[in-house]
Every structure is written in structure tokens, then in C-alpha cells.
Design a protein around this nucleic acid. Structure first.
Lengths: 212, 212
DNA sequence: TAGGAACGGAACCGTACGGTACGGTACGTG
DNA sequence: CACGTACCGTACCGTACGGTTCCGTTCCTA
């Protein structure tokens, strides 16, 4: 996995800024060289190619967002709910971030070309972390007898759909995000626990959390 | 609402073909004129502008997909389930269609520019039909005592999330679609009925539909 | 049959891109 | 001091785009 020098990181930061502010067409080699006070020749020496630059931007951004693996404390039903809600809020926050949206738009715009290499990269670097966190939560919940499902992956996709619905695509198209991510996270987790929770932890917890 | 002449429709058809096959950068005025055997001058006379052309493509594509409004027959629980599953399958089919994906990519690529006009157009023309169909189904189900929810819109978004999850974005990025849309539709509707159905129609219907 | 609207084909213009090459400069090293 | 390295700034090249203009042809109509 390639690491970059401080100077190169600085350039990549400017590249992300340009992309966020003006979209793909604002991210030109000349524009980046001007904005980052570097020469085009250096850009091509460092990243080889425009596509190389884009890939480097994705790798750089991914390297900035490290999610800490939550270690295995003993889970209780309210604790599981809290962790699920935290995950949901974090997911919504990540997806609605400026840089995330810009990179996703970039990958989508490039998707028809050459096997969607950028898209693969984006999913791999950007989503693997958060997917693993969710899957670990699924697994812990099941082992603690608090969740029931046959297929952890399917259950996770259900949770994801409940949290995000069509919000991601809408934001990609340009609509504003939710006004209250926390409320959406709470409702999604409530529904998820109805579907995959044990006990009737759903109903009473719903009432208990009404005051939040 | 502008209508187009047969010749213009023919040109728009070619434009959609170019867009599907090569993405946004393949849809050039020169290329379209060549592919459609027309002159660039005519393109500009008819559509005024490149953005006008894109808008016309969206309007044209929307005009091709007319969903028939299902009139109000008397709903039973299995009938509601069938209608919901049919809706889910249709939704998955629409979202995974070549032209739909290409137009969504186009709108997303354009989203940073000029108030995301294309995105609004796409959502309005493309989604209004299917949204209304779903909302009508929600409403009928509730009035027949088969569904329970406070907010029909929220319930619909739940259904949408259960059906689509992150599939739409993945397909936009270039990943292949599901191998079995019908199975996904069935599981999504099962979950939705657990959340918002009355009776315990969910469990037995799940067993009854296991042989499909 | 004359005239005009509609249209296809092609040349053209200004611009901006990705990518390359060249001169100049700061700096570390023998 | 001489030399190499790494870099910046800029000029440059080939290409391709969106958009405009001009001309020849077809076809409809009076």
C-alpha cells in the first residue's frame, strides 16, 4: 500500500478541496498545480496519471478516517441498542460528509470506464472499515443471545437499508441531508430490533427511549 | 410540458444509447449528430443547449415509462402482499435498468453545477410515478386494516430501504446487480409486514410463500 | 414552377483539457 | 566548489469539446 510524503499529502488535500468545491471538472491538473503551488510535472511524477491521482486521493482520504475497533465488552440489550444507534449515526454522518459525497460522485462518474476501478477502490477503502464494525456488532449481538438471524450479511444489509433508505442517492444527486440524523438512527434501530432482536426489547425500549 | 416530434424522439433515443454505452463523455454533440444522422445545428435548434438536450432526454425517457394506476379493488392480506412484492420487483427492475442507471449517473455528475437542476428533474419525472403507486398501496392497506403506521411517508421509506438497501449506489458505482430480484423483493416485503402489518400475517404467509 | 421552410453535412472558432518539455532555483553531498 | 536531485513555473503541443456559421438538398406549398 503506497504511502505519501507530507508534501504529497498537502497536494492531495488541495485536490480534495477542489473536488468538493467544484466537482470533477474543477479538478484539473493545471488547477491543482496552481492551487497547491506545485508543478504539473511533479504531479505526473508522483501520481503517474490522472487516474493515479484520483486513486491516491481515495487512498489518502481513507487513511484519514480510521475507526477504532470496539473491543468485546459484555453486551446487554440497552448496550447493544446504544452501539447500534451510534453506528447508525456515524454511518449517516460519514455518508453525508462533503468529501465522501464528492468522492462517490467522482467514482460514479468514472464507473463506465475501465472496469470501474475507482468504484472498487472506494468501496474497498471506504466501506470495509464500517462494514467490519457493523459485522462485529452483529456477531457479538448474536453470541450474547440478543440478536437472531440466519445470515449476518443479510441482517446487516437490512440494518443498512433501514438507516439509509434512498438518502444516499438523494444526497448524491444534490438534495440536502436529513435535519435530524439522530432521530433517523433511532427509528432505524428500533425497526431493526423488531426484526432481529430477541425478547420484546423492542417495545419497552421504544417507550423508554421516547424521552431522548 | 414539451412534446417532441418523431424525428426528435429518434434523436433522443440515439442520445440515450450513446449515454448508456459510453457514459457522459461519450454523449457529445458531434457524436450524437453523427450517430443520429442529423446536424449539430438541428440539435441546437431543437434543444437549445446541451443542458436542454439532457433535460429532454430525461423527459423523453420518463414519457416512455408510464405505470398504470391500479384501481381500488378490495384488498385482502395475501393480495396486499402480492401487490407489495410486485411493487418491490418493479422497483428493483427499474433501478437496475441500463437507462435509469445512466441517467442517474448523469444527474449525479452534474449535481454540483447550477442547483442540481437535472437531479430535481430526474427525481420528479422518474420517481413520482413509482412513489405515488407505493403511497396508494400504503393508503389502501391502512384503510383495509392490513397495515399500521403513523406516517405513510416514513413507512414507505422503510419499505424502500428494505428493498433497495445500498444496492442502488453499488450499481451506480459499477457493481453488478442482484442475481435474484424476486427473492430480495420477497424478503423485503416479509420484513416490512413484520414491522407494519396487522395480524400475524407475516409468519404464516412466510411459510405459505416458501414454495414460490 | 417558383419560393421558402426544414434539415443534413461540413468547416470553422475559441477554449480548455491532459500530458510533456524546458529553464531556473534551492539544497544536500563528494 | 562542482555536481546531482528535487522541485517550481511556464510555455508548449495535440486533441477534442460546445457552439456558430454557411451551403446544398429535399420537400412542401401556393
Amino acid at each position: 500500500m503506497p504511502e505519501f510524503s507530507p508534501r504529497q499529502n498537502e497536494v492531495l488535500e488541495q485536490a480534495l478541496r477542489l473536488l468538493v468545491e467544484g466537482g470533477e471538472k474543477a479538478l484539473t491538473t493545471s488547477g491543482l498545480a496552481r492551487a497547491a503551488n506545485c508543478s504539473k510535472e511533479s504531479l505526473y511524477k508522483w501520481f503517474g496519471d490522472r487516474e493515479g491521482l484520483l486513486a491516491a486521493m481515495i487512498a489518502y482520504q481513507a487513511s484519514k478516517v480510521r475507526t477504532q475497533e470496539r473491543s468485546g465488552e459484555r453486551l446487554t440489550a440497552p448496550l447493544l441498542r446504544d452501539h447500534l444507534e451510534l453506528f447508525a449515526r456515524d454511518l449517516l454522518e460519514v455518508l453525508s460528509g462533503d468529501v465522501s459525497l464528492a468522492l462517490n460522485r467522482l467514482a460514479i462518474g468514472q464507473s463506465h470506464r475501465e472496469g470501474s476501478k475507482l468504484g472498487k477502490l472506494l468501496l474497498e477503502h471506504g466501506r470495509r472499515q464500517i462494514d467490519r464494525r457493523a459485522m462485529a456488532l452483529m456477531d457479538q449481538g448474536k453470541r450474547a443471545g440478543l440478536l437472531r438471524f440466519d445470515n449476518a450479511d443479510a441482517a446487516y444489509h437490512t440494518l443498512y437499508g433501514l438507516i439509509v433508505s434512498d438518502l444516499h442517492v438523494r444526497m448524491l444527486i444534490g438534495e440536502p441531508g436529513l435535519k435530524d440524523n439522530a432521530r433517523q438512527a433511532q427509528k432505524a434501530v428500533d425497526a431493526f430490533l423488531v426484526l432481529h432482536g430477541t425478547h420484546n426489547q423492542s417495545a419497552d425500549a421504544q417507550r423508554a427511549s421516547a424521552g431522548r
